[in-house]
Design a protein around this nucleic acid. Structure first.
Length: 271
DNA sequence: ATGTCCACCTGCTGGC
DNA sequence: TGCCAGCAGGTGGACA
């Protein structure tokens, strides 16, 4: 899925299509994704004008002039695509926009989710309230991660992917940031030196920013709203490259399982 | 509290 | 060529 850079790319792609425009008709074609869709989804969004688009962690946020915000998560396989003709299978929610555009929330595995909250109470929503800070927030304390890691026995990679610690990091960017910071992903978080965690947090911001600039990573499912693919997968140094040479030292990269997620790292460079 | 494991769902791929 | 086990960008809940 879509991790932070992919969701950011999707949200940016929606701007020109939606900002200031009215949603003529919003229609759910099934009652649920991962969880039930709000029963009043269509009623609350149809006829409303889109005022703002934003991202928080891996959630996209679409706010209307009625004081509502649609919160959406793309799960593992979610995409939003311009849907010119009749809906494809797995186009679960359709948005007909003033001006003729039709957008489809497309999600074969249905791990995605949607909800609607009042915009003035967004921060209290159960999906958003637990989220940690944004890793690209310029105001983020450089030692935020170092503080979160103190005393933790959990693998540093699992800690990075905990949305309560930092919002938006998933399996790809955790692996890439750990490689850049030369930290072994299975190392207990509390046993990584603070200065190395500060470097890790900086490496993470670099990787995320580079990926956003490339339109995110397109593996199986991610694409921009336009259908154009992101290209950051071409820049992966370790993710998905098990058995291939480490870009730094040439040794074969190793695959392991950490916290139930596959992980790739260099046993020589990462300690 | 903390950490680990599993289920949820569909589609694709690599090995036979 | 065809079949199918295994795996995929996430995450909440059950359990030790």
């Amino acid at each position: 899925m879509p991790e932070l850079p992919e969701v950011e790319t999707v949200v940016r792609g929606l701007g020109p299509l939606l900002l200031g425009r009215r949603l003529l008709r919003v229609e759910a074609r099934r009652p649920d994704l991962r969880w039930p869709l709000p029963a009043d989804l269509g009623v609350r969004l149809s006829g409303a004008r889109v005022q703002a688009l934003a991202r928080r962690g891996k959630f996209g946020l679409l706010s209307t002039d009625r004081g509502d915000t649609l919160i959406f998560h793309l799960g593992m396989s979610g995409r939003i695509r311009v849907s010119p003709g009749s809906p494809h299978p797995h186009d679960h929610v359709l948005f007909a926009v003033e001006g003729g555009t039709v957008l489809a929330f497309h999600d074969p595995r249905r791990f995605g989710a949607m909800d609607i909250a009042r915009t003035d109470a967004l921060g209290r929503h159960r999906w958003l309230a637990p989220l940690g800070p944004e890793p690209l927030d310029p105001a983020l304390a450089p030692d935020h991660l170092a503080r979160a890691a103190a005393g933790r026995v959990l693998a540093i990679k699992s800690l990075l992917m905990d949305q309560r610690v930092l919002a938006g990091i998933g399996n790809i960017y955790a692996a890439e940031a750990l490689f850049r910071a030369r930290i072994a992903p299975a190392r207990a978080a509390g046993r990584v030196a603070a200065r190395r965690l500060i470097a890790l947090q900086a490496a993470l911001a670099d990787v995320l920013a580079e990926s956003i600039a490339a339109g995110g990573s397109s593996l199986r499912d991610h694409a921009r709203v336009s259908g154009e693919l992101g290209t950051y997968q071409l820049g992966f140094r370790v993710y998905g490259r098990q058995g291939k040479p480490c870009p730094a030292c040439g040794r074969a990269l190793r695959l392991s399982v950490i916290g139930g997620r596959s992980s790739v790292h260099c046993t020589a460079c990462q300690r």
